[in-house]
Nucleic acid binder design. Structure first.
Lengths: 190, 190
DNA sequence: TGTACATCAGTGAACGCGCGTTCACTGATGTAC
DNA sequence: TGTACATCAGTGAACGCGCGTTCACTGATGTAC
């Protein structure tokens, strides 16, 4: 069969979305090409007509997932919930319990730090964008102070969600989220 | 050959130390049994006279590495550097650049969250100990306030170090550490 | 209009490789009689 | 004292399996003449 114009792009985007989610859920190393392609409704061989290698897919999936973060922050601002609303969502049980649709930095930062420079570079560029966007919406302070606060808050957010995900005690996990929220708001304001 | 009394225990501890370091450096999934045992100066088959499975080793290595954290905090207190001294070390370039000897939560929290409940349970128990120890040395506040601060600070520490490790821009990485330090001290005091 | 060829997304078997785990075996020493 | 057997940490080859990647092929459609 021949395919519609734009069909290949659609397929590529579909693979990317499936991969991005699977990576965040199970970790990059745990996702195999055959399983990934089968989940995307294709066979393994087709992968290489879309991406040069697994590492190239990782690179694109990371950037894609960070763009998702940008979208979430923008949506929170537009909805009137503001940066605080974004932070509340970030430190919610729903985010903790759904890593596949959640923040890619919380799910994969440590693993990505062991990936090649090209991958980390692509991640870094988008990460800078996210930080700049957060800084814009910090309520008080000069532009440098805002950036500093944004970096601190981001670190707190990803670390707290990771701890909330790893501990097996639900009470402790909830406690981590609640305290993280207080700490984040404190960092945002002061 | 026969072996000295205590020889098996020494070997077990040696495997554990090598594994603990390799896990933190490369991630748990990336460490293979043959390579690990060869680094420990043994052959692959000997592993199973010491541990029931790779997962059992992971469990013990995580607990071991968290006990290392307890030791570091106690050392900082005893040296007079206090909790602030521990935090300064934690957010130092040296810690960022040596994950193998560093905080296991920063290196492996996200990966461990995908491991079996037994592994996460063992991690959680030791994690509680570390949090309690940090809380003890927060300078101001009631015991509940201290615990809350300890949880917030821990999240900030591990998240910040992970971000500092993943970004490929050295300036940004240093900036993350510096701002993380200010934020942590702010959370500790307020 | 009909025919020959080019295009290209996708198929599915196969490649070499390293994984976690098993197991028959080694060989030095301790114990029983 | 001498001999037969038990103990046990460690060896190293082998197990089945899934990994990332390659490649000859398919088959529907577009293009050239």
């Amino acid at each position: 069969m021949r395919y519609d114009k734009g069909h290949k792009d659609t397929t590529r985007r579909h693979i990317l979305e499936v991969a991005s989610r699977q990576f965040r859920e199970g970790g990059i190393a745990a996702v195999g090409m055959a399983g990934l392609m089968s989940r995307a409704g294709l066979t393994n061989g087709a992968f290489y007509t879309h991406f040069a290698s697994k590492e190239a897919l990782v690179r694109d999936a990371l950037v894609d997932a960070l763009e998702e973060s940008v979208g979430k922050i923008e949506a929170a601002i537009e909805s009137g919930a503001g940066l605080e609303g974004f932070i509340r969502d970030y430190l919610s049980p729903r985010h903790r319990d759904n890593p596949g649709r959640g923040c890619v930095a919380a799910a994969l930062a440590a693993e990505v730090s062991r990936h090649p420079a090209a991958t980390r570079g692509a991640f870094t560029d988008k990460f800078e964008e996210v930080v700049a966007l957060i800084a814009t919406h910090i309520p008080v302070g000069g532009s440098e102070a805002k950036r500093r606060k944004a970096l601190g808050i981001y670190g707190l957010l990803i670390g707290t969600v990771q701890l909330a995900r790893v501990v097996s005690d639900k009470r402790l996990s909830d406690e981590l989220l609640t305290n993280g929220l207080h700490a984040a708001l404190q960092l945002m304001g002061a």
